[in-house]
Amino acid sequence: MTSVAVGDETAMRRIGVTVNGTLQAGEVSVRLTLADFLRQDLKLTGTHLGCEHGVCGACTILLDGRAVRACLLLAVQVDGHSVTTVEGLAPSATVLHPLQEAFCAHHGLQCGFCTPGMLTTLVEFLKDCPDPSAEEVRVAISGNICRCTGYDSIVEATLSAAANMRDGS
């Protein structure tokens, strides 16, 4: 594994982090953001950068199960922790997470750039709130900006996924 910042090797650290269930070890520059670590070092490019100042939500990942902005974390901070990205949501190469299924079925994505952050946010939300109202879904994704859909289809998809997940459990 390589660091992106070669100019400040003095500020390197070894880290070990479980990403989508697999332990990843490597040496990183201490100023490397978690988002860049995931995208560049681990080649998990599903975590998108839309603003890099913590507003758009595209880079949302799950840190120890909680939805957080990966652009507002340093890679060194997740040493010893567990991270789930959009690539880790589907149970297999042929089966999707119920939220992913529902997003496809309800046209919950157009360009797909905000989608990973929407999904990770909603995975945590539905764990906390398995039977939400439409209004609760809207509040849950109020920190995720989508310029394509107008959100209605995302809300519909989430309610549908929640119903399917309740039936399945």
Binding site: R39, V86, F103, G112
Partner: peptide, 13 residues
């Protein structure tokens, strides 16, 4: 959707 929904689309970055 197939690629985008899994986060394996390919954007320029």
């Amino acid at each position: 959707d197939e690629a985008l929904i899994r986060g394996v689309g390919r954007f320029v970055d």
